[in-house]
Structure formats: structure tokens, C-alpha cells
Nucleic acid binder design. Sequence first.
DNA 1: TACTTTGACTATCTTTGACTTTCAAATATT
DNA 2: AATATTTGAAAGTCAAAGATAGTCAAAGTA
Lengths: 155, 155
Amino acid sequence: MSKLSNAIESFIKKMLQNTENQTLEIRRNELADYFSCAPSQINYVLSTRFSIHKGYYVESRRGGGGYIRITKISIDEDDLLHTIFRIIGNSISQSKSEDIIERLREEEVISDREGEIMKAAVNKKNLNLPVAARDKIRANILKAMIACLMRQKSE
Amino acid sequence: MSKLSNAIESFIKKMLQNTENQTLEIRRNELADYFSCAPSQINYVLSTRFSIHKGYYVESRRGGGGYIRITKISIDEDDLLHTIFRIIGNSISQSKSEDIIERLREEEVISDREGEIMKAAVNKKNLNLPVAARDKIRANILKAMIACLMRQKSE
DNA sequence: TACTTTGACTATCTTTGACTTTCAAATATT
DNA sequence: AATATTTGAAAGTCAAAGATAGTCAAAGTA
């Protein structure tokens, strides 16, 4: 029975529901202790159940006072951002990126200035790499920025 | 329980806010006594929380009557952007990038949302590369975004 | 086969303490 | 009186130990 991961998943989701701002902080080792499992089990659950695609944003910090912070992003399936996120996939050219950013601007999801910042970030001049690698990294950056917009929206 | 560094950080920042000219002098040993910690803890806090990236300038003097003087740097936006540009150089870590972005936000050069977008762009999760290459590309991205802010301003 | 669990190893952040350097005031020397 | 030396009071440095979290691959399970 692979109940462990499921149990941890529900536990975290329940905790999340009891928060005001959709944000929860945990101590990895505490949680692992609570479930009597390896600490890395927590990472497994986070990466399989709380990924950005599933609508969660995870930050963390190591060392004394370290933590893992989980934020729920409200995603609605026919949301423009969500669609765009899918369209990007795992590789994208500069010009397509710019088209997407332009579109976001037209739809007034982002301001002019935000658009300029985002375009600057995906410019190929920054990414001094073979084209294939460059397009992958660009996709990551663009998706990260858009995920961030989704997060902002739900706050 | 790594509240110590955070506590010392807030304490100093609160003290700074109560000064007229953004400058504060402390006695290292006194402060260490106050927090019941090793004096070198103060140095740790200074170097991690009051770095040049975060917009602070720290001077000190040893010997009898020694002191540590902490100054919050305040310069006009144009200089700030140029200075930051220089500080970035051609390679920078994620955490230093975040410090810089945080500072831009504090100085109200960028909005909260713009800050989040910029942080998303420099996150290491996007840059699946060896550290050295990653830090170079991050520097490019960050500088490109900042250059974009300068352009915006002059328009 | 695909998903889950574990554990060894790594990376990062914090705290502490032993040792070093610098400075100003007091004291000694010329 | 002027200069040199000593002393004690700061602050600085650095490496080790402690506290977390991350990664990855091997082993287990459905």
C-alpha cells in the first residue's frame, strides 16, 4: 500500500486549508518524524503532488531556522495563463516568447513595463548557449515568470 | 531556532529607522551581550544582512572606543541602477540577485509584482547548468532586466 | 512497468570559539 | 617635552560544529 505519500499529501492539504493566505510553512524533519519516514520522502511528495503544474509553489531554506513554504495557486483550467503555460511546453524560441508576452500585455494581464522586463529576461543575448539548450532554459524562465503571475493573482 | 540572526537583523533595522541620517553606531560586544551570543555572530549578521547588495555600508574601528557604523545608502535612482549594474559584474548567485531585487523594491524603483517576476526569472531552477555557467547567465538576465528599467525611465 | 520508500551523500545557512589585528591611552625613556 | 613602548580594549578572521534541506540511485511494492 502506497498510503504514505497519500497520507502526507492530504495532511499538507488539510493544513493548507486552515491558513488564511494559502501559505503554509513546514519543517521537513518534523514532518518526516511525524510520519516516521525518511526526510527525503517529503521531497518526493512535494515534487509529485505539489508541483507548479498542479498549482503549488514551493520555496525553502536550509540551515538553522530552515523551512519549506508551500503556497497554493488558484488555477482555473480555462484561464489564459494556464493555457499559455501549456503552450510554452519545455522549449520555446525568442520570437514566440515575445509574441506570448505581447499577448499578455494586450489582454492587460501585465503592464507595459512588466512586459519589457519579461522580454529582457528571455532575450537570446543573455543565453549564450547552443540553441537547443537555450530554448529549453528560455521556456523555464518564461514559465517561472508566468507562474509568478498566477501566484500574484490568487493573493 | 535560527531566530538569532533574524532577531539581530530586525533589531538593527529598527534602530536605524529611529535615526535621522540613516546611520547607526553600535558596540559589537555590547550587542553580542544583549543577545547573549558570540561577538562574531554580529559580523555574520552584518555580512549576510547588511551587505552592499542590500544597500548598506559598514565601517568600523577597533581598539579602545571602537565602533561599528552602519549606513543605509541612499542615492538617486539613476545612480542606483548604474551602481547595481556594476556590482552584478558578469557572474552572480541567486541569493545575491534576490538581495538586489529586494533592494530595488525597498527603494520603490520596482513594484512588488515586478520584483516577483524578476526573482522568478533568476531562479536557479530555470538554469539547469553547471554553477559557473549558471551564474554568468543569471548575471546577463539580471542586467538585461535592469537595463530595461533604465530605458523605461529615460523615456 | 511505474510508483514509492529509503538512505548515503551533498549543499547551504547558522552559531561558536580560538586566534589575530588594530587602536588609544597610559607609561616609560631620552 | 617629545618620542617610544606597553597594555588593554575593541573589532576581524576563519574554521569547525550544528542545523536544516536537496539529490540521486538502489531497493521495494503494486
